[in-house]
Amino acid sequence: MVATQHTLVALVQDKPGVLNRVASIFRRRGFNIDSIAVGHSELPNISRMTIVVNGTSTMVEQARKQLAKAINVVKVVDITEENITARELALVKVKATSDTRSDILEIADIFRANIVDVSMESLTIETTGDEDKVESMIKLLQGFGVMEIARAGKIAMVRGPLGPMPVAKARNEFRKKAD
């Protein structure tokens, strides 16, 4: 079985150590977490985690079930197969001289990125988008001399009116009927 990238969304209780509990479940199974993004959710005292990991479907499903068992984890779903909107945020600091500045601005413009800081020797560009977009922009900027990159982990949402939990539930029920 081949390892593929999976995106999991977990709603967790806002308690000390909860990030450790979640990370520990992946750690002991030898997963390398590609990214993990945590922040408040729409519910009080509930945080939302978006976790991106590489693994075979069976291994990720086993980890997901173990996550679901953790007392502080309220819900967890694998949304990899869903129609999702996923975004990453990156800040890129690029070397810029009077000769190169306008070229860099043009690239930023094409990617609809924002310039958030300018100095005599550098430009800092802020971009949001899916992983491909962020990657391509960084690749183009590399020629000018990238000085620093800071990337936030991926956050994701299922398209349409339903949240990740009802969507997964509906799909499971559909699958059961199909059996």
Partner: peptide, 10 residues
């Protein structure tokens, strides 16, 4: 609590 994290239910 750190040590027993993987060997306790909670």
């Amino acid at each position: 609590t750190g040590i027993t994290l993987p060997i306790t239910k909670h």
